[in-house]
Design a binder for these strands. Sequence first.
DNA 1: CATGGGATTGCGACTCTGTCTCAATTGAGA
DNA 2: TCTCAATTGAGACAGAGTCGCAATCCCATG
Lengths: 169, 169
Amino acid sequence: MNRRELAIFRKYLERRGLKLTSERQALFDEVFSKHEHVEADELLVRLRTKHKKISRATIYRTLELLVEAGVVGKLRIGEAGYRYERLHAGDHHDHLICDQCGRVIEFFEPRIEALQDEVAVRHGFVLLSHNHQMRGICKRCRPRSKGSGSFGAEAAGPVPVPISSRPRG
Amino acid sequence: MNRRELAIFRKYLERRGLKLTSERQALFDEVFSKHEHVEADELLVRLRTKHKKISRATIYRTLELLVEAGVVGKLRIGEAGYRYERLHAGDHHDHLICDQCGRVIEFFEPRIEALQDEVAVRHGFVLLSHNHQMRGICKRCRPRSKGSGSFGAEAAGPVPVPISSRPRG
DNA sequence: CATGGGATTGCGACTCTGTCTCAATTGAGA
DNA sequence: TCTCAATTGAGACAGAGTCGCAATCCCATG
Ligand SMILES: [Zn+2]
Ligand SMILES: [Zn+2]
Ligand SMILES: [Zn+2]
Ligand SMILES: [Zn+2]
């Protein structure tokens, strides 16, 4: 199932007169070995131990190629740097992130996708991409608080106010 | 119209046993002087020239307070660091960003907001916040290409593929 | 007024990500 | 074999943000 994406990457390199070196192949393989949202340095560590002595610069350079080829997604999930994920051709999803355990859940809501186009048109925009993240507490992280309102009275951080408020005046 | 937000900030500080110092007041005033999406260092420069010799650490520390108090929004718009914007009580909006000129346009689409809640419920999430950005080319940045498909044949970067593709298998 | 203590500040060192430079290496083709 | 562009690793570098700390400020108290 990586066949299609590898072919896309190959074609991308070819069109640019670039080569599919063993380093690039190794990184491609690692990224496509499982579905995750992983940091560049984590990939570096893995390739360093498992495979070869690959450099950080090469990791970053190759990730950029994969992103431009369209087979890898690049997004900011936490406070720190970027996360990368393999993308399957013709697929799309957005993210739900648990503020407590960091779990990342993917979702696809066609009605939201359609409304985005509508909003873009309304503002005369040609949409090229979007980034939609929702944050909160996942199912696993709140087995408590079934009765009344607010959960965990940890008294730290702002009060969780519902977001769906009024439109701008 | 900053009255309400200043009151919120004051109360926030009070509850934490903190003080509304002149530096904090100055930063509040600067942020609330106009509606924009501004970087921390830009605020530093402005306060340094106009007002006093305020330090970078204080800017960052105070911005964090304002964010926690809920009167300032913190978001990533470009590749670089965070941008900050004043928030008016009970207001909410998301962002459309022009990839070419960097213009930031705000929008509010209640149907999207509602669908987000729906998606969250579907996945057992308690929603606390969300971040929704759409990127593309704004009205002003494309007076050309009225006939056929792709605009500007600059042959750089990935081909703009429509995002509204199929759901994940 | 003198003292004490928590909050605040500026400074600079530091961390973390990611980029860039450059010399050495590789590899396909002439 | 020779040539030349693409590639690589190493380390310097850069930008954004954080941290530790001594000096200060601000009150409250004695
Ligand atoms: Zn989407
Ligand atoms: Zn994902
Ligand atoms: Zn929204
Ligand atoms: Zn905004």
